[in-house]
Simulated scan of single mutants.
Amino acid sequence: MQVSEQAATRPTDAGVTTGSLARKLGVSPTTLRSWDRRYGIGPALRTDGRHRRWTADDVAMLQEMCRFTAAGLPPAEAARAAKERARGRGRSPALALVRPPAEPRAAKSPPATVHPAEAPTSRSGTGLPLGDVRQECRGLARAAVRLDAAAVQSLLTAVVETHGLATAWAEVMAPTLRAVGRKWESSGDRYVEVEHLLSWHISATLRHVYVRSVRKPRTGGPPVLLACLPDEPHTLPLEALGAVLTERGVPALMLGGAVLAEALAAAVRRVGPSAVVLWAQSRTTANLPLARHVAGTRWGVRGARTRSLVLLGGPGWDGDSGPGLPRPLRLDDALRMLGAPEH
């Protein structure tokens, strides 16, 4: 009786195949064979003396190997650490590896001023079209592809603590998200689960920074109002802007995705924001007449009514928007226009 391919790759007492394990971990079968050959981190079982069968303990060890390499360890060191943990002698999980030792903070933290041209670059090795990127992008992409939520969150937390949120968003989070989105579009929804996982954890990280920062005592003043246009669900760039603004002492009021025109106008009149940032991810959601209406909305007491500065954010805005509607191209552009300089 012929055994089906599904049955051959199903976990059993005899272990799983190399191909099945590679798909689970988000690496290639060649990579697993190379790790076995070079670092001795191979399967406990081999059928017919040739075919690899990976047991549950083997799988756990390989998952540790992937976490360590995603954290930036060279493969040889990662293999050694994974084998030590498998033997019960490991002293720290991947989270400890991605977080640098605590050091006294200087007046100006060098990591916060790292520029893309100065950052280490690397290819992803995940099948995602990352190009030349920071080392952290490669690790984050690998963890996301294998749906390793713990490693994704550990890496995001570490990069924010090391480089600051603005740099973490511009040089790690956003490039990895774009790569996953391009892969999703070109592979027929094969990576939709990767995009969802990564987006959820990035959003959680951004909101954590916001909540931590908003609790700090600060002077009063009108907030910056952040809103997606009607029918626009993509909020992550605005979440990043809101978190960085709040971190830098500028109050931000986030209305979220797909804000109705009437609700947006009502919020402007009620709050009297210093500025309004309107996000449109695509041309189909951009609404220039609505943006102009918001820019023309006056608020305040009679005799001293004023208007808010309106910024158009996102790639959806096309062509000349006219005077009085600036369009920041990057996060640092928006921060500068909103008066939130780096501390």
Rank of each mutant, 00 (worst) to 15 (best):
M1E: 12
V3Q: 14
R10P: 02
T12Y: 11
T12V: 08
T17P: 09
T18M: 06
K24A: 14
S34Q: 13
W35D: 06
D36V: 05
I41Y: 03
I41W: 00
A56S: 14
D57P: 02
D58P: 01
D58M: 02
K83E: 03
P93Y: 04
R99V: 12
P100N: 08
A102I: 08
P116W: 14
S122K: 01
S124T: 14
S124K: 03
P129N: 07
V133G: 03
R134A: 13
R134Q: 10
L140A: 01
A141P: 04
A141G: 08
A143R: 03
V145A: 01
R146H: 11
A149R: 14
S154I: 00
A158S: 10
E161Q: 09
G164M: 09
A166C: 10
P175E: 09
G181V: 02
S187N: 04
E193Y: 05
V194W: 01
L197P: 00
L197H: 01
R212N: 06
R215M: 11
R215Y: 08
K216D: 05
K216M: 05
T219M: 10
G220W: 10
L225K: 04
L225N: 04
L226I: 07
L229C: 11
L229T: 11
P230G: 09
P230Y: 06
H234P: 08
H234N: 10
V244K: 00
L245G: 08
G249K: 09
G249I: 06
M254N: 02
L255T: 04
G256W: 00
A261Y: 05
E262T: 12
A265W: 04
A266C: 04
A266Y: 04
V268C: 05
R270E: 10
R270V: 11
L278E: 08
W279E: 09
A280Y: 08
S282T: 15
R283D: 14
T285M: 07
A286D: 12
L288A: 12
P289F: 11
L290D: 12
H293T: 14
W299M: 02
G303Q: 12
A304P: 00
T306L: 05
G313A: 15
G313F: 02
S321H: 15
P323L: 13
P323G: 14
P328T: 12
L329D: 13
L329V: 14
L331Q: 14
A334Q: 07
